[in-house]
Design a protein around this nucleic acid. Structure first.
Lengths: 339, 339
DNA sequence: CGAAATCATGTTACCGTTATCGTGTCTCGC
DNA sequence: GCGAGACACGATAACGGTAACATGATTTCG
């Protein structure tokens, strides 16, 4: 490689001069667009390579009014669920020339607004964002932007443009059905108390509604704040079981605290799933390898990512009603009695 | 909000016309730069708001030759270690106006090249990338780019510009010392066999070197490919203990498989840490809440992210020798005998 | 064999912002 | 009461590409 320090950043002009053709032709070569003879193509490519030229997408984007970015806005990265979604998105975007750019909101609506604003200022060609609940400001920005918007994870509500996800009400209801069918009746719930975690809220609503239909009520609840961890799961489980020792089932709002609870219960010698059943939510891979497989619901994270990406990339059409509802799938595991 | 669908995207001109001042003044208001009277500022801001104007950073970046992005290039998101690094970076960048943009290489050098190329084409104002090993092409691109480059995680090698990390050789050596001091002698190793995971390799090298200095050799090794999981840790542990039943210590290349191994060993009734000791690497939060706390080494992930971000943001000066070596810290946990 | 189509390349006019410099209006101190 | 700054704003020229059209050279084919 050359060692002359290029204090003046390289432009198309440099490559054009080095290869004796016009800037336009260089541009064509570098983008594989239009007719260029094999000979000049070669000349240009070697010139570009030896100079170490890297195209300037800022200028290119301005001129062409097209930007190959897709904004992806999610609440958190440490959640273990969003990396999976991202994986699905990347996989599906890989052969489209589109590139995901991730923004994290930490479950804060106002931060969502600013992240969205920042993202839109790059004029991406699509937006994927978690959830159906957004501020007025955010909705206005998205309406104005005039680009494909896919809201993911949730389908219980009205999408701005398109939604891809599962019904969390249904997920809650279905697991409630399973629990009831297995004969459990004294049920407790452990979950986050984040007003902004709408999906957890909807799950619980669907869960309680279904219980109610069978005349069953939640016997106890335990809420916590902040991130989920095994430790948190242990503490809350101990607390709820101390308070209500005759519970026969614990429904957790996610697998991580569920797993913590499971470990604690096993150490305490509870008869699982005989006397006490447990269930989480998400279906994270972490569960494989625990002493018992926690009962849970697969939230279809990767599929959600894929379908959302396919829609922004126009690999598949936006459905008529703007809804792609995937089916949450029940994973029985070992912590619920077999029906 | 207004409901006239703006098919033509909004520009500064629209805001300028709506507020009766020049585009230049609007620009000044929106960036808080230069002198603008309070009255016009107000006029402009309300006009911008009611129109729903979002500035175009593509055009802005081109004109100003300044872009508030920092490219962050890491091998993986599902690794549980990089989200922490990212957290540190974001936290430190938050008040600088800089914004991280993440690219993932999946431990593939050629993918690293393309990701880097794509990132540089956005002319970011800095690059943070994992590791000290990069292709010739990548080094050339970074040399040419003329911007701050911080390589993170590792300091065993020669940085292009600046490196922030821990010495993995040292981390390996230190844990070896602890293990030897605790009296273990028949030691096995379980880790990935990814030629591209240079840091794991260096850790093992430092580990074995230290053992060698005490006349001890690894009794057995077990390698695996692909991602780490509890399940993988279980399988490999079973395999190695079947093959070499009289091992008295297992050193894992990361906490996740270490935790899997720990769970398996506990189920098998091994006397831990009496007859068998275990250690992982990373110090991930996941460990809290397991039946025993796994012995491990904190890789200082968040600190690494913070320091790297501080340097690209010029919050702190690049050190003379271009090296910021943090100290890996030994976390004794419960799976090693107390000295 | 000549007109039309094709190919390979160049010219020109933007894309939407910001840097820079210029201009008119106040304010102020002596 | 007047020159010198400060202040508030506008006009103009980039920034580095690409779209669209233009041009000369070749090829195609009735």
């Amino acid at each position: 490689m050359n060692n002359k320090k290029p204090r003046r950043p390289l432009t198309l002009r440099d490559v054009s001069e080095a290869s004796g053709v016009s800037e336009m032709t260089v541009s064509r070569v570098l983008r594989n667009r239009g007719d260029v003879s094999a000979a000049t193509r070669e000349k240009v490519l070697t010139a570009a390579r030896t100079l170490g030229y890297v195209p300037n997408k800022i200028a290119g984007g301005l001129a062409s009014k097209r930007v190959n970015l897709v904004a992806v806005i999610i609440p958190s990265l440490s959640n273990m669920v969003f990396p999976d979604v991202l994986g699905g998105i990347s996989a599906e975007l890989d052969d489209t020339g589109l590139q995901p750019v991730v923004g994290v909101t930490n479950y804060s609506p106002s931060r969502e607004d600013t992240v969205l604003y920042d993202m839109l200022s790059w004029r991406p060609s699509g937006v994927i964002l978690a959830g159906l609940e957004h501020s007025k400001v955010a909705r206005a920005m998205l309406d104005n932007a005039g680009l494909p918007v896919v809201e993911i994870m949730d389908v219980d509500g009205t999408p701005i443009d398109t939604a891809v996800g599962i019904s969390h009400r249904r997920a809650g209801a279905e697991i409630a059905t399973e629990i009831l069918n297995a004969g459990y009746r004294r049920i407790g719930f452990i979950g986050t108390h984040m007003p902004e975690d709408h999906r957890a809220r909807k799950r619980l609503a669907g869960f309680e509604e279904r219980l109610g239909e069978s005349g069953v009520q939640l016997v106890a609840r335990e809420y916590y704040q902040g991130g989920s961890s095994l430790q948190k799961g242990r503490e809350l489980t101990e607390r709820i079981m101390t308070r209500e020792p005759d519970l026969d089932f614990l429904y957790y709002s996610n697998d991580m605290i569920g797993a913590g609870g499971l470990l604690w219960c096993l150490e305490q010698g509870y008869d699982i799933p005989g006397k006490l059943g447990l269930a989480g939510f998400n279906g994270v891979e972490l569960l494989d390898g625990l002493p018992m497989r926690l009962t849970t619901t697969d939230a279809r994270r990767i599929d959600i990512g894929r379908r959302a990406a396919r829609i922004v990339a126009s690999k598949e059409p936006r459905p008529e009603n703007g809804m792609v509802a995937l089916a949450p799938t029940f994973l029985p595991g070992d912590t619920i009695r077999k029906a």
